[in-house]
């Protein structure tokens, strides 16, 4: 309501100018150029995508993989996050530290972690060799990729769940309990609705990251047909700039749409309580 005489509008613009220049020069304009290239030849590249079973198939499997990763991550992180934020016990800090340790691992390193688990010399391989006599190796496949994305997403979602659960007004749950609600009813009627906006946002982020992740797939195998790998192959091996541009814009559009839908839904679900 009050005007801001201590930080005038021209000064504010001056402070924003470097950001505007950097962003326009190195993202907006390049993206425009990419869009222009991809729509060359009357949008032929996009038509070709529609008629190519391979591209469509890779889009579908990428979406399915990301959905599965998001769902499993959220369920597991809810269990662990609520457990860790609600209970005090010796070793709790250690468990939290362990769960958040991989936060700074890039996709390539995560891919290598999957190899350590399920690769030819991995833990599972040794275990199955000892138990059944045959080595089980599934790192270099969709399953391996699934594990990798799970590995990447769990720390982020657990942190979000814990932060949201700690912010949750404890008296709400106490009120529900005083009115006679049982544990699972409290969870269903109070806790989960209160966590919903945070879960929605982090779930969307988890989905978007899985859609676009490249490093993990790159480390595990170049022949897994997820969209980022297809883009990479088109660009480097086939030098097919047109298709690579179109595919990456489609990928960008999908992730952006999911994120903004989640943002809008989150804003709406948060509004009544605010």
């Amino acid at each position: 309501m009050q005007t801001d005489l201590t930080f005038s509008r021209p000064m504010r613009l001056l402070f924003l100018l470097p950001l505007l220049v950097v962003f326009a020069a190195f993202w907006l304009l390049p993206m425009g150029a990419l869009l222009r290239i991809s729509t060359g030849e009357h949008g032929g590249a996009y038509l070709a995508l529609l008629h190519s079973p391979r591209y469509l198939q890779s889009l579908i499997s990428t979406v399915l993989l990301s959905l599965a990763v998001t769902a499993v991550t959220i369920v597991l992180s809810l269990v662990a996050g609520l457990f860790l934020s609600r209970r005090a016990f010796p070793g709790r800090q250690l468990l939290i530290a362990a769960l958040t340790l991989p936060l700074a691992f890039p996709g390539v390193v995560v891919g290598f972690m999957v190899i350590m688990l399920a690769g030819r010399q991995g833990v599972f391989s040794d275990l199955t060799q000892a138990i059944t006599g045959t080595r089980s190796v599934f790192a270099y496949s969709m399953t391996g990729l699934f594990l990798g994305y799970l590995y990447f997403s769990i720390p982020r979602v657990v942190l979000t769940v814990m932060a949201a659960a700690e912010k949750l007004d404890a008296s709400l749950e106490e009120a529900a309990r005083s009115l006679g609600a049982r544990d699972w009813e409290v969870l269903r009627d109070v806790t989960l609705p209160a966590l919903a906006p945070a879960l929605l946002a982090t779930g969307a982020m988890c989905f978007a990251t899985s859609m676009g992740a490249f490093g993990t797939a790159f480390t595990l195998a170049t022949d897994i047909d997820v969209l980022p790998m297809v883009i990479y192959t088109e660009f480097t091996l086939n030098a097919n700039m047109l298709t690579a541009a179109a595919l990456s814009l489609v990928l960008g559009a999908v992730t952006w749409t999911v994120l903004s839908l989640a943002h809008t839904a989150g804003a709406q679900s948060a509004a009544p309580s605010a």
């Binding site: 814009l249 990928l251 952006w256």
Partner: peptide, 21 residues
Amino acid sequence: LMVLPVAIPGLASALALLVMY
């Protein structure tokens, strides 16, 4: 607008930079 480079896959931003520069 500013979070777009984080929201959409890095591959797209990288390709765009390659196309432009």
